[in-house]
Design a protein around this nucleic acid. Sequence first.
DNA 1: GTCTATAGTGGGATAGAC
DNA 2: GTCTATCCCACTATAGAC
Lengths: 179, 179
Amino acid sequence: MSQTVGELSPRAREIVDAARALLESEGEDALTMRRLADRLGMRAPSLYKHFPDKETLEAAIIAEGFEESAERFEAAVAADRRRPLRALAAAYRTFALEHPHLYRLMTEQPLRRDLLPPGVEERAAAPLVAAAGSVNRARAVWAFAHGMTILELNDRFPRAADLEKAWREGIRMFERLRS
Amino acid sequence: MSQTVGELSPRAREIVDAARALLESEGEDALTMRRLADRLGMRAPSLYKHFPDKETLEAAIIAEGFEESAERFEAAVAADRRRPLRALAAAYRTFALEHPHLYRLMTEQPLRRDLLPPGVEERAAAPLVAAAGSVNRARAVWAFAHGMTILELNDRFPRAADLEKAWREGIRMFERLRS
DNA sequence: GTCTATAGTGGGATAGAC
DNA sequence: GTCTATCCCACTATAGAC
């Protein structure tokens, strides 16, 4: 079910793993070629023997993120076939809150699709398109989910806000439209 | 109806204006103290006689953004009392697309409320809270609108996507819930 | 309120030896 | 595939003279 990201040499794999760990623990600003090299016990210039530039390395992390979130979404729908939108929303939020920095890297910038293995984005999107019933409705649901998520990550809701309730308000609506 | 941001000296006003112009024309990365000083025909260190740090200067720009968007939202609701949510959504998107870099500055990071004149955020939010009927519903609508907006700005929808349609799908739902 | 000078910190990336 | 040395870039901010 799981699938490896492209064809990476063993050393390149280690570098991606370390890069992701650094990103997830300290955020995007901490992901520099120097700090990454430090973690790997090597010098920054050596990294360029494995990746042509930083963007390509980031794309490898992003591809992993898409593959893992796709698995989550597929499992969520499989586990609750009665209310796929609700299940997807919960899985979406959970993934983002568990991997906030990865989620930001995946969503807060234009996607370099040319640097990704083909199909990874589509696979992650497929369960939602199926559950929403149309592409436009899927876009609206995605926008709602991303908005809730990124505003929460950016600390834009009041501390006392009942976000579960706001999520439920939104999902309930989208569910009604289906019937 | 319009209101000035805090009490700024004339020179400080000029600096904020230039900073905003620089931000809007070239984006957040271009808004550096050096480039700002260049535009004003002065040296970067001189800016610190007017603002204690960059964050405070940015907060002045953000406050302006809130005031201007509040005016837009109030006018939109006044112009279409039958469908306030639809009017607000259109005004929201228009403001963001007209001022993409300002919109990013206003939404993509935690808000330094301690650096803003009191009430500016609330005033901008008020029309939506009134139109949505409840705070939680307002949060859901905001999340949808912000999601649509920022995903568009981040170029995450396919070129061919009919975003008008996706917006309509979302708004239609939220309108139905009211009745 | 402006300047010069500068501190201090960091970044991505390349050349060329081994 | 790793290294050293280095380039060139950028930033926020402060001290102190005028």
